[in-house]
């Protein structure tokens, strides 16, 4: 059955393996001992989203994909996580150009929003599915963005840690309070000695801050942080990349923010396979959203 997320499986090619970085804090890149864990500020929010899709059927060769996305921001009070903002959407994705009017009408009668995916000139079922998955991913990002925006607007002093890149949140009101916690290292921005320094950081150390390239968007500052010792394990074990808006304060606060993230190592997010790079509140959002998804399990 064609279902699941478009996350890459081992052995599949990486679409964007390399990108560019400009050093902004030190040249060459340095490893900096941050000085042990600290409690994140009270009221900090944590954001993540989920997505699920499955091919429900076909009109001819055209796949009809039904999808569900959800996003949530949780905050922590006295150690317990509580819902602060939530978004979800269930919808249908089809290669619109290849459907007849009758087929479109039939879909509209289902009562769910219908999104159209890109169509290539020649038909390829896997490419069609991939195109649908891209739409699903965009919808999830939209849901996340909405939930995060609601939280940032409602809590004008709270920090927010989101799963993945800060991306589009580098501008606009509240951007200074948003931290991206990236755990996949598909795209490498550094090279040479800088890359060596970044990928061999010791536990509790961060790299100098650099600016990473971002296609068509505002600039983003980023740095690496090692949460758990990696020796005798994988090079990437416990390695995270943090992101914030491109501002002088990001340089000033990189050590502090790194210490907050070290403070979030416990409790660990097992049984999640990427527990070494995941913090518990974000792991919990996924559990929470998946539980609320009901029949989509």
């Amino acid at each position: 059955m064609a279902a699941g997320s478009p996350h890459r499986r081992a052995g599949q090619p990486i679409t964007d393996p390399f990108a560019t970085a400009w050093l902004v804090e030190d040249d060459p890149l340095r490893a900096i001992q941050v000085g042990g864990p600290l409690r994140s500020p009270p009221g900090t929010g944590f954001a993540d989203g989920i997505q699920r899709w499955m091919v429900e059927g076909h009109f001819g060769l055209a796949p009809v994909v039904r999808a569900y996305v959800a996003a949530a921001v949780l905050t922590r009070r006295d150690g317990s996580l509580a819902m602060a903002a939530e978004e979800h959407e269930e919808f249908i994705v089809v290669p619109g150009e290849r459907l007849t009017t009758e087929q479109r009408d039939a879909l509209d009668r289902v009562g769910l929003p219908v999104y159209e995916s890109d169509t290539s000139a020649r038909v390829h079922p896997l490419v069609d599915q991939y195109a649908a998955a891209r739409i699903v991913e965009t919808r999830r990002e939209t849901a996340e963005r909405k939930a995060v925006r609601r939280f940032v607007d409602a809590e004008p002093t709270s920090w927010l840690v989101m799963d993945g890149s800060v991306g589009h949140l580098t501008g606009g009101p509240g951007a200074e309070r948003v931290i991206g916690l990236v755990k996949s290292h598909e795209t490498q921005y550094l090279e040479g000695a800088d890359l060596l320094t970044a990928l061999t950081l010791r536990e509790g150390c961060r790299s100098s801050v650099f600016e990473r390239s971002r296609a068509g968007g505002t600039p983003v500052y980023s740095w690496y942080l090692r949460l758990w010792p990696w020796t005798e394990r994988d090079l990437l074990h416990g390695l995270t990349r943090l992101e914030r808006w491109a501002d002088r304060t990001t340089l000033e606060e990189a050590t502090l923010v790194s210490r907050w993230m070290l403070g979030e190592r416990a409790p660990i997010s097992t049984p999640d396979a990427s527990w070494d790079r995941l913090i518990y509140p974000i792991h919990h959002i996924e559990t929470y959203l998946r539980a609320r998804m009901g029949g989509w399990n």
């Binding site: 922590r76 150690g79 416990a266 409790p267 660990i268 097992t270 518990y280 919990h284 559990t287």
Partner: peptide, 24 residues
């Protein structure tokens, strides 16, 4: 999932500061 993970999280120190989040 297993008590061992709590040991890992506390880096083997039973007197470590309690984690910021309580588990569900």
């Amino acid at each position: 999932p297993t008590p061992l993970h709590e040991v890992v999280a506390a880096e083997g120190n039973p007197a470590a500061q309690p984690p910021p989040t309580r588990r569900v």
